[in-house]
Amino acid sequence: RELEAFAERFKQRRIKLGVTQADVGAALANLKIPGVGSLSQSTICRFESLTLSHNNMIALKPVLQAWLEEAE
């Protein structure tokens, strides 16, 4: 499924970029996305391991996609 594929791609790109899960969480606050502050390292970890609820995964995907586009 698309969500699982994105989570895997996100993790691979993050590692290639040399960015930690905690760095991603902190950097999200800098994107100034309305309603989104920083996220914890454990939230990023749970996203990558697909252990968040489906609704949370869907909500976080565009936020993490925005970070990925900014980071690349």
Rank of each mutant, 00 (worst) to 15 (best):
C45S: 12
E72H: 04
A27K: 09
G35T: 07
A26P: 03
G37M: 08
G35N: 09
I15T: 14
E70P: 03
L64E: 01
M57H: 01
L31Y: 07
S40L: 03
L68W: 02
L60R: 01
P62I: 01
S40C: 11
R46I: 01
H54P: 15
S49Y: 07
P34R: 04
I15A: 10
E8Q: 15
A71E: 10
E72I: 05
W67L: 03
K16F: 05
A7V: 14
L64I: 04
V24I: 09
E4F: 14
G35S: 07
S42M: 10
A5R: 09
G35P: 05
I33V: 03
K32I: 12
K61H: 10
M57S: 08
T51V: 10
L28Y: 03
W67F: 11
W67C: 03
A26F: 10
K11P: 01
L64G: 01
A26S: 13
S40A: 07
L50G: 14
R14N: 00
D23Y: 04
E8V: 12
P34K: 03
F6W: 07
L28M: 10
A29V: 07
V63S: 08
R9N: 13
M57G: 02
L28V: 09
R9P: 02
K16M: 13
A29K: 14
L39P: 14
T20A: 07
L68S: 03
Q65D: 11
R46L: 08
F47E: 00
E70T: 11
G35D: 12
T43G: 02
F10N: 01
L39A: 12
S40V: 04
A27F: 05
S38H: 13
K32W: 08
A26M: 10
H54K: 14
N56C: 12
R46H: 11
T20N: 05
E72R: 03
L60T: 05
S38F: 14
L3C: 00
L39G: 00
T51P: 00
A5E: 08
V36W: 10
G37E: 14
G37P: 11
F10W: 05
R9M: 15
M57L: 12
T43V: 12
F47L: 03
K61S: 05
L17K: 03
I33K: 04
S49G: 09
I58P: 00
G18T: 00
